[in-house]
């Protein structure tokens, strides 16, 4: 499937990148690594724009933003500055460069309540433990956001998206071709959209929120714990649906059910509304163990 293939390509390029970094470690001196530190107030905004190379960002317990950046060549430099309660970090090409010479690897530590905005082209992004708003846009870079309870918005062209342990927020994940995996993601509004990318959800759709997982041709796979409290509808136009999860038939069916193309029902109190939609893909709901 297209989504899978893309992901393995990306993880291969990440591995190659790591190997390359190791090989270079002997020659690259510590002077190549730049470090910037900024003291910020509550609710600071940190933005990072980096076409190539990874961006790893994690929350720390202090009110300081620490940026360490490793440029891959003298053709790029790092432009970092603080403006009030905003810290902006941007890779600056001194000359026209490509993916090899234009690469900068970033490692950032930010206060736990910071808001974060990241834009990359092919660079992978990892964001951990941030409690403010997280917004990530990437072309083909893999995006991984975990352990957050703020608003999270991720959009990619083909880059795979992984979301882990997100709570109470407003979660929006959109990829045209990349797969979207959600593990223990709950919130007031959780919305996932893809064209060809597969969507995989495992968790309990907690919190009485509104969940919508939609793909045009990608498959949607949901593993639901028995304690889940959901009011679920699933429907495909030309694809197929399969359900192995025990659902009570809806009291007031809101849509005409047609065999093999849709199903609906509730489980427990039916607190969260869950909508699964695909045009030509397959939807499968099963019980997780």
């Amino acid at each position: 499937m297209a989504g899978r293939q893309k992901m393995s390509n990306t993880s291969r390029s990440v591995t190659l990148g790591l190997l390359a970094a190791l090989a270079l470690a002997a020659t690259a001196s510590a002077a190549d690594k730049k470090e910037f530190r900024y003291t910020v107030a509550r609710g600071a905004t940190i933005s990072v724009v980096n076409d190539y190379g990874s961006v790893r960002l994690r929350a720390s317990g202090v009110s300081q933003v620490v940026v360490s950046a490793t440029p891959s060549s003298s053709k790029v430099e790092v432009d970092a500055a603080q403006n009030g309660n905003r810290v902006e970090v941007r890779t600056h090409f001194l000359r026209k460069t490509g993916e090899n010479d234009g690469r900068v690897e970033y490692d950032l530590q930010v206060p736990a309540d910071a808001n974060v905005m990241i834009r990359t082209a092919s660079g992978p992004v990892q964001v951990r433990g941030v409690g403010g708003d997280v917004s990530v846009d990437a072309d083909t870079g893999q995006v991984d956001v975990r352990d957050s309870n703020g608003h999270v918005r991720v959009r990619t062209v083909g880059g795979p998206i992984t979301l882990n342990n997100l709570k109470d927020g407003f979660v929006e994940a959109t990829s045209v071709g990349g797969p979207v995996m959600l593990n223990n993601v709950a919130g007031r509004v959780v919305s996932v959209n893809t064209t060809g990318g597969a969507i995989v959800y495992s968790g309990d759709f907690g919190g009485g929120g509104q969940y919508s997982l939609t793909s045009h041709s990608g498959n949607i796979d949901v593993s639901l714990s028995a304690s889940a409290s959901v009011d679920l509808t699933a429907r495909t136009v030309t694809g197929t649906v399969e359900n192995d999860f025990p659902l009570q038939a809806p009291v007031h069916p809101i849509m005409a059910l047609s065999q093999g193309k849709s199903f609906a029902g509730t489980s427990n109190a039916g607190a969260s509304a869950v909508r699964l939609r695909t045009f030509s893909g397959r939807i499968r709901v099963k019980k997780s163990h």
Partner: peptide, 17 residues
């Protein structure tokens, strides 16, 4: 340039959808 082929294939995919 490194993103060009991804845009190409995804645009094709979207237009097909």
């Amino acid at each position: 340039p490194s993103s060009a082929s991804a845009y190409q294939s995804n645009l094709d995919q979207v237009n097909a959808s």
